[in-house]
Design a protein around this nucleic acid. Structure first.
Lengths: 355, 355
DNA sequence: CTCGATTAGTAAATCGGTTTACCATTCAAA
DNA sequence: TTTGAATGGTAAACCGATTTACTAATCGAG
């Protein structure tokens, strides 16, 4: 393995200056002013030895790292890892690399991670913010760094946000339960003020109010173990006599809730109808299969990347603060639809095609 | 937001040289030789303005990036994202950041990604290798970079490997099916030569041979859509009359297989017993719940980090080539155990505690 | 008292690029 | 013929640290 050559080594070898080589490689205004023969000689030599400029040196001089910092709640959560995967692939294609980090929705952790990203001079940020992180986000914007906020956002600060229609999704899901004859419907959600959760609650309440039903709600402490969540939900269901339908606010709440319902030996959907927020590839295979509000993961990812790339290329233009709320899709499966054939245990064929 | 100060700004401010500051910050042999008063003055000033050395400049000068490159097959796969999460957290604590990338098991892609990592001067590599990537890994070792290979490895090259006891896991799982009265057992796996898959096959065959049964095996083309996989498995089951038990080689094969079995309206475990390789938090909630060979995700991650950190700190010591094969655990659930009560659809309480 | 070693500190080179400022030519217009 | 603008190129500063090599001053031993 020969020592890596620097631009100066090449300059010496070719009898030109490093400056000229740099101009040729950058192209642009100044690159045009290099004569064709010299340009060709440089390019073909570089091609032949496979020279690539050292990105760290470039970074130091220009301040551009070609790295994006991505902050999510938990990269091992299927929703975030799906988005992470698509964003990663797209950005690599544009020559960017990614620093991932998980906050666990912990403000202090998020703050530290953003500082780390900043030290490393990342060129842009993709952030699913934790509560209380507004100031830090504003600082980034103040430094004219592109920031895309997603999954949740702060209405009070002017950022570019990519989210889903949480209220609409919850409303549609609740309406669906109502239309299927469930009347004592509860919303099981997090005890959180974050906007995605409060909007889901609002959507739920709107549907409940329109149908003149009573609003039932369980707000659990944030994301403890499945065991704890399950116990809490079990207590809620048995304590709150007569719940016959549940909309779960997140995918892991749905999982914990399903376990609770199993433990209570209740039959879905006969005893209780279920809809989850955030679909999962396994929900189709559950018995009964689980109805869910699906988030358009692909679209969310593409939108994030599109906005970010645009902001990074038009380096003078600041992102316009705007909230993009993408539509959700209710994937109706067995868990929310009462019908006669379901009383018998049988694997019925699914009509849906979407996975 | 004030301009970030450099070490020279501080030097000027304090009337000392940048060299001295650098020595103080590094500590070590040379740091001892700075007088106490000067040292204190520097440290307290730095503390007061919150100075942090620019890591890019450090990187350029020292060649150390404090970044680890992590190459997995697919970061959105639950197995890899779980490992990614734990590794990430641990390495951040040690001051490292991580570049993730997904190969989709594509050799060319993996090659490019490794080159990108190398250009970026990552300090170490964590790699779930694709086929045919031996040469590139050897090159990295040749540059004296720490490389931890995991999930699969190449027996022919001397690397540090963190894997699981694939043969043992498959053997135990197959034996379990045999002990539960299944006799026409098939192994549904990938058409792949990678060692993790061939060892699983070997473990399966060993158990089958010991029980004097006939070995049945379906090797599917690599990871197409769930629809395609499902169709292929369906055809296999119906075509290969009399299969009454299946060990699935990967988690997504199990999912596709379950869909196939649902479509065929077969009853698990009465008509067919099922064991999956690689557990999933949802398997407990399926009806029936799914027996699986669980990989010790936490242990794998910790081992990877431990070996890597050790190699990074003892910067002269080269990693000893060794394969660490961690034990699997068979999580027995309903899908592989025939019993009378199961004929009736009922949610039975689980005895297991593990999730 | 002198020489060598230790101590405390610094100037300058370096990592590998980019960018600014400047220097010759050449060519066209006045 | 002179001037002024392009043209084609380079030298040197710079980004912000680390590291090498060197200088003074002090100290202790012979």
């Amino acid at each position: 393995m020969k020592k890596k050559l620097s631009i100066h080594d090449i300059a010496r070898e070719l009898g030109v200056s490093a400056t000229t080589i740099s101009f040729v490689l950058k192209g642009g205004e100044r690159g045009k002013k290099v004569s064709e023969p010299v340009k060709q000689r440089i390019l073909s030599y570089i091609e032949s030895i496979g020279y690539k400029p050292n990105p760290i040196a470039q970074n130091l001089r220009t301040g551009k790292s070609k790295i994006i910092g991505m902050l999510v709640e938990d990269i091992s959560d299927p929703f975030f890892s799906a988005i992470g995967r698509i964003v990663e692939d797209s950005l690599y294609k544009s020559g960017y690399k990614i620093f991932h980090a998980s906050t666990d929705n912990d403000t202090e952790k998020a703050r530290n991670l953003l500082h780390l990203f900043r030290e490393r001079q990342v060129d842009g940020y993709i952030v699913a913010p934790t509560p209380g992180i507004q100031k830090e986000i504003l600082e980034l914007l103040h430094e004219a760094k592109p920031v895309i906020v997603f999954d949740r956002y702060f209405p009070e600060i002017a950022t570019t946000n990519v989210v889903i229609d949480n209220a609409g999704g919850a409303y549609t899901a609740t309406m669906h339960l109502i239309e299927n004859g469930f009347t004592k419907i509860a919303f099981v959600t997090l005890d959180s003020d974050q906007i995605q959760m409060s909007e889901r609650l609002a959507g739920f309440n709107k549907a409940i109010a329109e149908a003149n039903l009573e609003s039932r709600c369980l707000k659990v402490r944030y994301k403890t173990s499945v065991q704890n969540l399950s116990a809490e939900i079990k207590e809620f269901i048995s304590g709150y006599a007569g719940v016959d339908g549940i909309l779960f606010g997140t995918n892991y709440l749905a999982v914990s809730g399903l376990k609770a319902i199993q433990d209570l030996q209740m039959i879905i959907p006969n005893d209780i109808g279920i809809v989850g927020f955030d679909d999962n590839s396994h929900f189709e295979l559950f018995t009964p299969s689980i109805t869910a509000v699906a988030q358009p993961v692909e679209q969310i990812s593409k939108k994030i990347v599109q906005l970010l790339i645009k902001a990074l290329s038009e380096n003078d233009t600041v992102l316009t603060a705007k909230t993009y709320a993408l539509p959700t899709e209710l994937i109706v499966r067995e868990s929310s639809v009462r019908n006669a054939t379901f009383a018998v245990k049988t694997n019925m064929s699914k009509s849906e095609t979407k996975l």
